[in-house]
Simulated assay, not measured.
Amino acid sequence: MSLKVQLQNAQKDALRAKNKARLSTLRMVMAEIKQLEVDERIEVSDDRIIAIITKMVKQRQDAAKQYQDAGREDLAEHELAEIPVLQEFLPQQLSNEEIDQFITQAIAQVGASGMGDMGKVMGVLKPQVQGRADMGAISGLVRSKLN
């Protein structure tokens, strides 16, 4: 079953269960997907949906941090409550050991010898770990290994 169908079914279930918070989050994801489909006149693939959801999780985390810094815990809690609903539809997160293995393999694959090869390494890594790890953290780890 495609990820889009899973999201639609979860949306229907949330509607039946009268779970307003979950329903609102799922509607937001579906609206984002629909907007992309209309704008680009395509049927969105599972990989694109994972990228959309990953971006939305990152946005929620950033917004929650900003709200907390501003002393608005009520708004921060709302943002943080949406994150687990979004993460349900992402692939299982990679462990630190798995991430380290992927980085080591990518460095060996492109024959990276220094920071000049970081783009090549990240190009190999991104499709392998997209949605399963924080790309910012991956970038930092690659940078430290290449130095």
Results as ranks from 00 to 15, higher is better:
M28T: 07
K12P: 00
L75R: 08
D47S: 09
I103H: 04
I138P: 02
V129Q: 02
E32N: 13
L125M: 02
M135L: 15
V124D: 00
I103R: 02
E82G: 11
R72N: 07
E88F: 04
A17S: 10
S144K: 15
L15I: 11
I83A: 01
D69T: 07
G116P: 07
Q87W: 03
D74N: 09
I50W: 03
V110P: 05
G140I: 12
Q93E: 14
A63L: 08
E97C: 03
G131R: 07
Q68W: 06
A70Y: 03
R27N: 13
A70W: 05
G114I: 09
R48G: 09
R27S: 05
E43G: 15
V142G: 01
Q109H: 14
E82F: 08
P84Y: 04
K18M: 11
Q105C: 11
N19L: 04
S2L: 10
I50H: 02
P127W: 05
V129G: 03
Q93F: 13
P84W: 07
L125Y: 00
K120H: 14
D39W: 04
P91W: 06
V38A: 12
A64I: 00
Q11N: 14
V29Q: 02
E43K: 15
E32S: 12
A17L: 05
N96W: 12
V129D: 01
R72Q: 04
S2F: 08
N96H: 14
E73C: 01
T104F: 07
E88C: 09
N147W: 08
M122N: 04
E88S: 09
M56Y: 00
E79V: 05
G114Q: 05
I52P: 01
Q101W: 10
F89Y: 03
K58G: 05
K65W: 00
L3R: 00
T25Y: 01
D69V: 09
K145T: 03
E37N: 11
L125R: 02
Q130M: 15
D47L: 14
L80V: 07
A133K: 06
A70G: 03
L86K: 02
E32K: 15
S24I: 05
D39R: 12
V129W: 01
P84G: 06
I33M: 07
Q128I: 11
N9F: 11
T104Q: 13
V29S: 01
A17V: 04
Q109L: 14
L86H: 03
V44P: 08
R27Q: 13
Q92E: 15
L26M: 02
E97A: 09
G114M: 12
A133S: 12
K120C: 08
V29P: 00
L7M: 01
L94Q: 06
A21I: 08
Q92L: 15
G116Y: 08
R41S: 13
M1K: 13
D69S: 12
V57S: 00
K126E: 13
S144C: 05
A137V: 11
G123P: 10
A51V: 05
K12G: 04
D39V: 13
I33L: 11
D62T: 12
Q128H: 15
R48A: 07
R132Q: 13
D117Y: 06
R22I: 06
L36S: 11
A14R: 04
N96F: 13
Q87N: 06
R22K: 15
G116A: 12
R48C: 09
L7W: 02
V121S: 01
R72C: 00
I53Y: 00
L94K: 08
A76H: 05
M122A: 03
E73F: 06
Q105R: 14
T104P: 01
